[in-house]
C-alpha cells in the first residue's frame, strides 16, 4: 500500500520549472532496436542525465513507463508475470508480495560493481533479501513528514497529535492510503510494531482515524493534489507525501515547512529490481550499475530532492539527515485487513 508512498516518490516535482525540464527530457519511446531495456518506474528515477550516458555506453534503447501508484505497478507486473518489463523500482514493503508471486529475480551483486558505493546504512536491508539472495538494490529514500504552515506555527509542531486538535478542524488534509494512515495512527498511539498490529490495536487505530476524519477537509491521493489543496484552501497542516511537497508549496508562495515529529515519521526506500521476465539480465545489471554511480546519487538529491543511497554529502546538503528518526516501511501483517479497516474508516 504504499500507494501513497508511491506517489510520494514522484516527489520529483520540485516546482514546475523542474517538472517541465524533466518532461521535456523524458525520452520518446523508440522501438525496434536490437537491444532494449524496458523500465517501469516513478517519475524522476530515469532522467536523461543518466539514461543518455547509459544508452551511449550500451547501445541499447530505453523505454520508460511511469506508474501512478504502487498498486498499478503491481497489477501491471502481475498481469504479465513480469514479461512486459526488465527493471522496476519499488519500495521495501512490496518485496514480499513480488517475491511470493515470483515476479522478480535475485541480483548477482558481482555483476554490479558500483554496489560498493552504497552507504553503510543501506547495505544490509532485510526486507529485500530472501534465502541469502538479494532481490533489490536501494536507490532512493524519503519520508512522509508533517508539513505545516510556518506562519501559523512559529515553532515546529513536535507531535502528530496536532492533527487531532479540533482547533484546526477543516484546515488539515491527510493521505488517502490504507497502510500509511494505519501506520501513522499506530505510531501516534505508541504501538511498538506499527506493521504488526493485533485486532485490539486495529480497533483503536480505527477509532483514532475516525476521530480524525471529522477534522479533515478531505483526503488526498496525489503529490500535486496535496500541494494544490494546501495552497488553494490556506491549510495549516498536512500528513505529507514527501519532502518535495515543501518546495512545491514554497513555489506557490506558502510559508511551508516540515517536521519529523517525536512519534517518528514513515520512511520509504525504493530499490531497483530485475523482473522475472527480463529479456536481457546483463543489460538490467548494467542499468542498476549506472544508477549506483555517485554522480547519479548526487543528481537525485540535488535536482530531485530525493534522499540517495550513494552520496551521503548530497543527502546532508538537502537536509535529509533524519534517516534514524523514520519508521521504515515493512510488509505489514495483512494488507487485506488494513484495506478493510481503512474502508471502514472511510465509509463511517
Amino acid at each position: 500500500m504504499k500507494k501513497a508512498t508511491s506517489i510520494s516518490r514522484r516527489k520529483f516535482a520540485l516546482g514546475s520549472a523542474a517538472t517541465i525540464a524533466s518532461f521535456t527530457a523524458a525520452p520518446a519511446i523508440v522501438r525496434a532496436a536490437a537491444k532494449e531495456l524496458r523500465v517501469l518506474t516513478w517519475e524522476g528515477y530515469a532522467e536523461p542525465d543518466w539514461v543518455d550516458p547509459f544508452k551511449a555506453a550500451t547501445g541499447a534503447d530505453v523505454s520508460i513507463v511511469y506508474t501512478g501508484s504502487v498498486d498499478e505497478m503491481f497489477a501491471k507486473m502481475q498481469g504479465s508475470k513480469g514479461a512486459d518489463f526488465d527493471v522496476v523500482a519499488f519500495d521495501t514493503s512490496s518485496f514480499k508480495r513480488y517475491m511470493d508471486s515470483n515476479l522478480i529475480q535475485p541480483i548477482d551483486l558481482s555483476k554490479v560493481a558500483n554496489a560498493q558505493n552504497i552507504i553503510p546504512e543501506f547495505k544490509s536491508i532485510d526486507a529485500i533479501k530472501r534465502d541469502d539472495k538479494q532481490y533489490g538494490i536501494p536507490f532512493a529514500w524519503g519520508s512522509l513528514p508533517l508539513i505545516y504552515d510556518a506562519t501559523a506555527f512559529p515553532t515546529a509542531p513536535d507531535s502528530w497529535t496536532v492533527m487531532w486538535d479540533p482547533q484546526y478542524a477543516q484546515q488539515m488534509i491527510a493521505l488517502d492510503d490504507a497502510n500509511n494512515s494505519i501506520v501513522l495512527a499506530a505510531l501516534v498511539l505508541g504501538f511498538p510494531e506499527p506493521y504488526n498490529l493485533t485486532d485490539d490495536q486495529f480497533e483503536q487505530v480505527k477509532q483514532k482515524l475516525i476521530e480524525q476524519k471529522k477534522l479533515l477537509l478531505t483526503y488526498y491521493a496525489g503529490f500535486d493534489e496535496g500541494v494544490k489543496l494546501f495552497a488553494d484552501n490556506k491549510l495549516k497542516l498536512m500528513f505529507s507525501m514527501g519532502e518535495p511537497q515543501v518546495a512545491a508549496l514554497k513555489g506557490k508562495g506558502v510559508n511551508a515547512a516540515l517536521s519529523i515529529p517525536k512519534e517518528k515519521a514513515i520512511g520509504w526506500l525504493d530499490c531497483w529490481v530485475i523482473s522475472a521476465g527480463a529479456k536481457d539480465v546483463d543489460l538490467a545489471n548494467q542499468w542498476i550499475n549506472t544508477c549506483l554511480d555517485k554522480k547519479v546519487g548526487n543528481l537525485l538529491s540535488t535536482k530531485k530532492s530525493y534522499g540517495n543511497t550513494t552520496d551521503a554529502e548530497a543527502n546532508k546538503s538537502i537536509g535529509m539527515t533524519y534517516g534514524d528518526r523514520l519508521a521504515w516501511l515493512l510488509t505489514p501483517e495483512n494488507f487485506e485487513k488494513r484495506v478493510a479497516v481503512w474502508n471502514e474508516v472511510k465509509a463511517s
Partner: peptide, 20 residues
C-alpha cells in the same frame, strides 16, 4: 497500455506531479 503512453495516461501520471 504495456509500455505505450496515451495522453490521458500521461495526464494521469502527471496529475500526481503537477500539471504544467
Amino acid at each position: 497500455a504495456g509500455d505505450r503512453m496515451t495522453l490521458p495516461l500521461r495526464l494521469w501520471a502527471m496529475m500526481r506531479v503537477g500539471f504544467t
